[in-house]
Structure formats: C-alpha cells, structure tokens
Design a protein around this nucleic acid. Structure first.
Lengths: 233, 233
DNA sequence: GTGACATAAACGTCGTACTTTTTGTTCCCG
DNA sequence: CGGGAACAAAAAGTACGACGTTTATGTCAC
C-alpha cells in the first residue's frame, strides 16, 4: 500500500473510506464518534477530522443527537480520486471499471479533437514519444513498461486539450488503465491494432487534424469497451 | 446564500474556500492554524477540521513545521461540487463556465445515446414532460420557470443513461445552466430551435433511437458552446 | 389523542498540555 | 574554510476533559 501514516486521521480514512464504499455499512447506518474513538483507540479529535473529510465526499452526514449516518451511494462524490481508488479496490470493481470506461469513451475523443487544435509543439512531441514508447514495449511481455507509456499518452492528450476539466481526468484514466492491467491478469501482449491507433492519434494531433484525432480516439475507447464486454459480461 | 451555519467549520469553509479558489492566496502561500484561529476567532479544532476538508479537495497541503500551503490550481479537485460552486461565484467565472460547457458537450450526447437504450418508461415520461414544460414556458419572459424544466430535463437524461458517473454530473449541469441564465442577463426568450431540439431528444429516447438522440443532443451542446462564444470572446 | 415540556444522547466547540516532525542554525572538527 | 553533527525552535499533530447546543424522543397533563 501507499499508506504511510501521514497522520492518524489519514490512517482512519484509509480504514473507514474503503469500508463505507464497499457497502460494509449500508446506507442509513449510524456511526457514533465515541464508539469509533474506542474502536480505533484514538481521540475523538482524530475521528472528527476523518468524519469531516468523509462528509465532504458526501459519504456520510453528521447530525446532532443522531450520529454519523452513511449516505446512499447515489450521493457520493464519485469523481473524488480517493473515492474512485477505494471503489476500484472494492468488490464492485468491474461495475466501477465499466462506468469509468464509458466516461472515458465520452471524454477522450473530444479531448483529442481539442488537442489537435490547441496542442503546443512540446505536447505534440510528448505524444509522439509516448506512442513510440508503446510500440517499443508492445511485444515481449513488457506490460508494466507499456502501461507507463499508455498512461502518459492519455494523460498528455487530456492535458493538451487545454480544458482543465479534461486534464483532471488524467488520474481517473490512469487508475482505469492500471486497474485493467493489474486486474484481468494480462498474459498476452497488447492488441497491435490499438498500438497503431495510438501512433495515428499522435500523428493526427501533430497535423492538427481534429476530426481524425477524434475518430481515432473514439476507436480506441470503443475497443476498450468491447474488451471489457468480453472479459466481464 | 444557502449558508446557514451548519457549524463553525462549515462557515470557515465558506470563507476560506472561495478565497483560495479566487486566487486570493497565490500557490505556495502558507496559512498558519494559530493565525487563522485568531483571525476568525475560533478554536484551533475548528480550523483544523476546515483544513482537513480543504486538503481533501487538494486545495491546500498541510505539513508540519511549515504550515498549510496553498496548492497550484492544476491540482485542485475541480469536480468537487463545492469547488465548482466556489469557482463559479468567483472572478474567472466565464473561463469556468466555458470549460464546464465543453465537458457537457462531450458527456451529454453520449449520455443521451445510452438513455435511448436504457431509459425506463418512467424516465421517458419524465423527459417528455420536461420537454413539454420547456415549450410551455419558452415564451413570455418566464425564464425562471423555463430554467427549472431545462435543468430537470438534462438531469433526467444523465440519470437515464444508467451510468453513475454521468448521473453525478447533473449537479454540474444545473450549475452551468442556472449560472448562464443568471449571469448573462437574458432578457430574451430562449432560442426556439433549442426548445424544439429538446422535444426531439425526448422523442428519440422514447423511440430508442440512440444515434438520433446522440446527434440531437450534440446539436444542443454545440449551440450552447456557440452561444458562449458570442457572449464571452 | 394531542400538545407542551422535560430529558438525554450525540455532536460541536473550546482551552490546554504534550508530542512529533521538520528545518534552520550553530558549533566543532577536519 | 568547509562540512557534518548536534541542538533548538517552530508549527502542526494528538490527546483529554469540560461544557455548550441541538434535537429526537418519551412523558405527562389536559
């Protein structure tokens, strides 16, 4: 884990957050701060700080005389990177992976189109470099190295779009990609067609061909969706 | 304001959050908890709880011996509804409105396509009802009533997509739509063509015509973007 | 049965004392 | 003169106990 005690409250979060997002406490459950303080052997102060954070994620609601109640899943801030990480680590990971991939399929093509129009020369170079890196590592069971380039490529596209909302989805995409590789034990090398598509997207962006960049990226995300359909019915 | 003292820490947030997102404290600025406690005349406990929340939004970072440092804007959790609200209330509202509208233009068409395939009869009815409501209020300076239907319509589409990530963007769209109406003082009635498009989207969804629903919704969002281009160069 | 009222349970706030970590400084030795 | 080790100070982190505040709930009288 990347969990290295940056404070008791953070440790608490790493315990409570996953438990709640995993549905361990059904919606409406109440947690009392005193009880939590006893259970985790920390002061109420620490509990309260953790609860404040969970509250800001809309995972729980703290009300007087009643306690800290768990909110229904529909109200959670599912765009919070931490919530995403917790849910991806939990039981309904496949479901989560699917909805995130659908989100990718909506956002990334548009982002690529914008990138074709607004990417700086430096960003184009980064894209090309990453695409070539993917080609170089696409054979011979170098999945980890491939993944690094893949993530960096998509991050670069999102950033080059010039839209901050897209740029901030880089973390989400990274989680999805690494989650996919780590989860569904991929023994085989990545699909050569997908690798080619990435190279072509880099080309299209470099040439400023927005519609082509968008179409090619749409092919990539459609492929990702189909792959998911095959492996998780 | 909807700010009715649900606790001192919440009030603190409503003061610090907007200030930070408005760039009042440049990145790298340090805030000391003691100083804040004095300035706002509350206990350190309250300050710390507010800081925990700001930290979870990646607005600040708290380090020992150093203080609470403001993080650069690129690292903020810009999908947090509260952050969105703060930024929309701030100075760079036009910029924010634009990036959110671009996000809409990417997401909503795909969501409409999914809705055409997965919407329940009840959701179809809701859509139709809202579209008709838009028609009914599209003339005669009833912008407020129109806005209610407009927001409900887009919310319904996002929810009917069956994708939770899309569904959770309902709040964002609501902020954008109401912000648009409130901000750029709209004296005129809404564009009749846009109203018609909404009715047609409801039709397409009801008939299960995914490609048509997607295409029509794309027209709506493209229109919203152009409208923004005209009014905010 | 209904309404006012009392009660208690839980969170909210505060002040203080203590701990831990980080960082800057000083001082000694090579 | 330079570098490293010990030390000191600053600021956040943690703990604890006391009190305040809200509010769900039960009770009692009418």
């Amino acid at each position: 884990m990347t969990n290295q005690a940056r404070g008791l409250h953070a440790q608490l979060l790493e315990s409570l957050g996953p438990a709640i997002t995993a549905g361990e406490y059904p919606p409406g459950s109440v947690l009392r701060t005193d009880e939590l303080a006893q259970r985790f052997d920390v002061s109420r102060t620490v509990i309260r700080e953790a609860v404040r954070v969970l509250e800001s994620m809309h995972l729980v609601e703290s009300r007087r005389r009643v306690g800290v109640t768990v909110r229904p899943a529909e109200e959670w801030n599912v765009y919070d990177p931490q919530v995403i990480r917790w849910r991806l680590a939990g039981a309904d990971r496949p479901r989560q992976l699917r909805s995130l991939t659908v989100l990718r399929s909506a956002v990334e093509p548009v982002a690529a189109g914008l990138a074709a129009r607004f990417a700086t020369p430096g960003q184009c170079a980064e894209l090309t470099e990453r695409a070539l890196g993917m080609v170089a590592t696409s054979r011979g069971r170098q999945l980890d190295a491939y993944l690094v380039h893949d993530i960096a490529f998509h991050r670069a596209v999102l950033r080059a779009s010039g839209n901050e909302m897209f740029a901030r989805l880089g973390d989400v995409v990274a989680e999805v990609l690494s989650g996919r590789t780590r989860h569904q034990v991929m023994f085989e090398d990545p699909d050569p067609a997908a690798v080619t598509l990435h190279v072509q997207v880099a080309e299209a962006v470099r040439e400023g061909d927005a519609v082509r960049a968008e179409r090619l990226t749409r092919e990539i995300t459609v492929g990702a969706l189909q792959e998911l359909d095959v492996l998780a019915p």
